[in-house]
Design a protein around this nucleic acid. Structure first.
Lengths: 212, 212
DNA sequence: GTCTATAGATAGATAGAC
DNA sequence: GTCTATCTATCTATAGAC
């Protein structure tokens, strides 16, 4: 059993509690209690509550979005090499699969996906803005790529449909944490999640490719 | 200028602030200040903060869901009379249109739709549970109706796709309040919202009707 | 880097006058 | 039904010892 340093324990606790109670609904004291750390230590490491939120978001979202970005670029490259247009489904899979797969990753990131799922439309502007800054480049990239895949559609319509896609994905991410789709200790949770991911990709691909 | 009673002013203020700051992020004092009422008056009328939330939800959601339910029943009746299956698009329109149209209704219900959009996946269990109790019957009705429209699909898949639909709708409802899709004082806000509504219906209809 | 102690503000709720 | 006043608890953040 390796020792985990205080800063990491604080991030873990904050991530877990923010996902279960929201940002405004969680106090620094709750976080430090769960982390078995001191209130002053939290402020020493992160300055204030809002900067702790930023740290929680950045820790997971930067690598996740880097992975999504790489997969989108890969789809674009392979399509270009074959002199084909990229496929809508491949692009959407590159965007969705890493996020959904995050639930199965080791860390308590099952909690984190709920934060992702809610952040874009969070009531608290602090949450929304700090999150949006971290995803805007990826969304711009994805939008442009989808326009290549769907040249017959107006760019604005592609953007609108991308927002619908994000809504459906976000909802999924929240629910897979709030209401486990099967028993938490069920052995086929992993399999169930893969099915859900494919169902979602099928759904949004049809929606995006719908005639104008 | 008609006098508005204290109870209504409190509901209006709470609705507005909850939609902008969330439930946990809004204090009773803020609400009473905006409502130009006294803190004690709020507790006299509603008992506690959570019951105020319930009152805010029920005031708009009960009539809205009644309207949606009536429209779903109408689609089913007309289909039955013609010995046809109901159309997926008609059912989805019956569910979505009243909610999106709510933005244009007189009251400050432009704020309320954001509450609806977020509630189902809200971090705060109090918000989620109180909301879910108010929409569960409608969702059950809609699910059954959609299964009639899509007999070739497994019922579980229809339910999964209905959740995606709710996610996309919720996202729309939040965004039409957070980030006005055009300038707030623009004369064609209303028209823009109608376009968005139709775009959403097209999107989710394609998604739901996608082959298995 | 982590602690104790506490400042200073604000929270939800209630008692009791009117 | 609405008010003033206040209780009690909790909050974020910081000062200063170690």
């Amino acid at each position: 059993m390796t020792q985990i340093d205080t800063k990491t324990r604080l991030l873990d606790a904050a991530e877990c509690l923010f996902s279960q109670q929201g940002f405004a609904g969680t106090s620094m004291r709750e976080i430090t209690t769960v982390a078995k750390a001191n209130l002053a230590a939290a402020n020493y490491h992160f300055g204030c509550k809002e900067d702790l939120l930023s740290a929680v978001l950045e820790r997971r979202l930067l690598p996740l979005n880097q992975a999504r970005n790489a997969r989108i670029e890969q789809v674009l490259t392979e399509a270009a090499e074959a002199n084909m247009r990229p496929k809508t489904e491949d692009l959407l899979r590159a965007f969705i699969e890493p996020a959904m797969a995050f639930c199965n990753a080791g860390h308590n990131s099952n909690a984190f996906v709920a934060i992702i799922g809610r952040s874009l439309t969070a009531a608290d502007p602090a949450v929304r803005d700090r999150f949006l800054d971290l995803v805007r480049p990826l969304l711009t990239t994805l939008h442009q790529a989808l326009c290549l895949a769907l040249p017959q559609l107006p760019r604005e319509l592609v953007l609108t449909r991308l927002f619908f896609t994000i809504g459906a994905l976000g909802h999924c991410l929240c629910f897979s944490s709030i209401t486990p789709l099967c028993e938490p200790n069920s052995s086929d949770t992993h399999k169930h999640r893969e099915t859900l991911t494919q169902d979602l990709i099928t759904f949004v691909t049809s929606g995006l490719e719908s005639p104008c």
